[in-house]
Design a protein around this nucleic acid. Structure first.
Lengths: 165, 165
DNA sequence: ACTGAAAGTGCTCTCAC
DNA sequence: GTGAGAGCACTTTCAGT
């Protein structure tokens, strides 16, 4: 389905999606047409979901990252759906996971400072009844990337190599 | 520095950076040229850091997200720098924070499954001596976005509004 | 399946206002 | 800030390998 050339294309586009197709082709050893068709297919197949601009958190005044661990006292499905919807609506919530283990849910929240987090927190609990919440703040963002590892992609060997065996 | 129109432009580009400048201009009530110039400036100023393709984690076979909480037994600066470098090198590490509070460091790791996490973990501890590690797995990704909240941006009021006052 | 060429389109970016 | 225009990159097709 995805071969090594596709993987290299994905790697390039994950890094910078403004590179012209002709240049991508050159880098992966393909001419423009097949390279363009591969990219088109990767988009059709949903491997490439979207192309977006990445902003500098500091420049848009969200310097503080908070991790919010939520433990709920077991509610029914309806409540959980409402819970998920309400929380997802907050633009400050960048990531939202249902967890295995002690903690039930984990949020990553982007805000300017601790006071803003407090205000966010108040708006959150005003909208939804949460029993147990524990917040940790990040002091420093050492790494944060939109690039997923591509080493685990199920690669189909290129035809040439397959025929060799 | 950044006014409301810039903010709307950023909001659009955070969502989809393939939209033509003319269309962005139309949406924010500007003709192509000034809109293009604003985008150019936002890039120069580093507000827009890059433009990237966002891939579907499932399609590239990283279905499991692990959060790794690391507690170190207080090392010196050199060790900490090496620690940061070694961990940052792993492409599976998508996010890496230095934390306040109980936990010293928090990683978000993307892997195909629990076995792959275990292999990753072995490679990690083989490279660096970590005393106390605690891993939690996400069962479900309810929300995950590259879009930062723009409500906190320091906005300079547009000239017209300022003059009105 | 990829190459290369080539036509058509639409966008980028500059310039004059 | 507007509007127009030149140049260019991208898209898409087609014949050929």
């Amino acid at each position: 389905m995805i071969d090594r050339i596709d993987r290299r294309i994905l790697s390039i586009l994950q890094e910078d999606c403004t590179i012209p197709v002709a240049e991508i082709g050159r880098r992966v050893g393909l001419s423009t047409t097949p390279c363009w068709r591969r990219i088109q297919k990767l988009e059709e197949d949903g491997v490439i979901q979207r192309r977006v601009a990445i902003l500098d958190p500091k420049k848009v005044n969200v310097k503080v990252t908070a991790f919010v661990a939520i433990t709920t006292s077991r509610h029914n499905d309806d409540w959980l759906r409402k819970f998920a919807d309400v929380i997802s609506e907050f633009p400050e919530v960048i990531e939202f996971y249902r967890m295995a283990g002690q903690v039930d849910y984990l949020l990553r929240v982007a805000v300017p400072d601790i006071e803003a987090y407090d205000a966010f927190y108040k708006r959150l609990i005003a909208k939804i009844d949460i029993s147990d919440v524990s917040t940790s703040f990040a002091m420093e963002q050492i790494k944060s990337t939109s690039q997923l590892p591509l080493s685990y992609v199920q690669t189909e060997k290129p035809r040439a190599e397959r025929d060799d065996q």
